[in-house]
């Protein structure tokens, strides 16, 4: 980023918006505090960037935290090669626009062995293309701290996650033996090889995320907004049908309808919802009367109760 600061006065703030309400302001302040603390205490932080709405908020907060300086760490995207095409396009635009260091990693073993969600099932696929890939990328980068956008309200096992979540050298999480975390005094001391996952959005809820996106005018992948799109119904999910790698099974047909996504991941594992909410205001209105949680569309959580905890223990975010 070209330095906008020529002299000791910062004269042209990048934006001018109405002030945030105290609720969002408190959440923002807390997140910025965490970003700065991690950046100061760790040698080599990285930010996990998944391109979704939470990552978009996380990135926005990082830019705020370090302004007028540059975001002092790279963004890491674990690319399974099965992401929605619009996500990849959006990722590259954002990295360019904000002058970010973007690191993209795909598991070479998974690629070589042709691991796909269709042929190997969601559990094995996720383990290799996401969890193992993440471990590879963290090891390769030598990162000792990784920011993630996880929120405690998302899923039961996350309710007990710390803001600094300690990981062993092989990236294991031990929920029975977490470091106590008091006040906003975080313990950033680790031994060589150990690392910390840091979660600045821990105390945000899904509604907070959306209201903050609205208040701060944060750009999102358009898939969050309803449009007429092609889809296939499979296992009770509506799967976007735009990628030629999606082969129709006997009896399946491609339909078209107004759909959107509440979360974004790998397209074969992410179900759409029927919706007419085609802009931010309508999405928020829809969300505030929603009766299902956002992870409802995620195949990864459905195998069995406690499946997220299992994945987390093994190093998944």
């Amino acid at each position: 980023m070209p330095l906008s600061v020529q002299e000791t006065e910062v004269k042209n703030p990048p934006v001018s918006r109405p002030p945030l309400d105290p609720h969002l302001k408190a959440l923002e302040n807390e997140a910025i505090h965490i970003f700065r603390e991690v950046a100061a205490e760790f040698e080599k932080p990285v930010m996990l960037y998944s391109i979704g709405k939470d990552s978009s908020v996380l990135l926005h907060l990082a830019r705020k935290a370090f302004y007028p300086g540059r975001v002092p760490f790279p963004l890491l995207h674990v690319d399974t090669t099965w992401k929605f095409k619009e996500m990849i396009r959006f990722r590259d635009e954002i990295a360019e626009k904000y002058d970010l260091d973007l690191v993209v990693h795909t598991n070479p073993r998974g690629k070589a062995e042709g691991i796909t969600p269709f042929t190997h099932g969601s559990a094995l696929y996720t383990d290799i293309m996401k969890t193992e890939a993440l471990r590879q990328a963290l090891d390769a980068g030598g990162y000792d701290a990784a920011f993630g956008g996880a929120r405690r309200d998302e899923e039961a096992s996350r309710a007990k996650e710390r803001i600094y979540s300690f990981r062993t050298p092989d990236h294991k999480w031990d929920p029975r033996n977490q470091r106590p975390e008091l006040w906003n005094v975080y313990n950033g001391m680790i031994k060589k090889g150990e690392s910390v996952r840091a979660f600045p959005l821990s105390n945000w809820t899904e509604v907070d995320i959306w209201r903050y996106i609205q208040a701060e005018d944060i750009p999102l992948v358009p898939l969050y907004y309803a449009a007429e799109r092609p889809y296939v119904e499979r296992d009770g999910m509506m799967i976007l049908a735009e990628d030629p790698r999606l082969k129709l099974l006997p009896g399946e047909t491609i339909r078209r309808g107004m759909i959107r996504f509440r979360t974004l991941g790998c397209f074969p594992l992410t179900g759409a919802i029927r919706s007419t909410a085609s802009n931010l205001e309508e999405v928020i209105a829809e969300l505030e009367i929603a009766t299902v949680s956002e992870r409802q569309g995620r195949a990864i959580d459905r195998d069995q109760s406690g499946s997220m905890e299992k994945k987390k223990r093994e190093g998944y975010f």
Partner: peptide, 18 residues
């Protein structure tokens, strides 16, 4: 939230609710 707790039927740590 945690499986270990469900198995033991006891809450063993701090959890946050919203």
């Amino acid at each position: 939230g945690l499986q270990a707790e469900r198995e033991q039927g006891i809450t063993i740590d701090v959890a946050y609710r919203y």
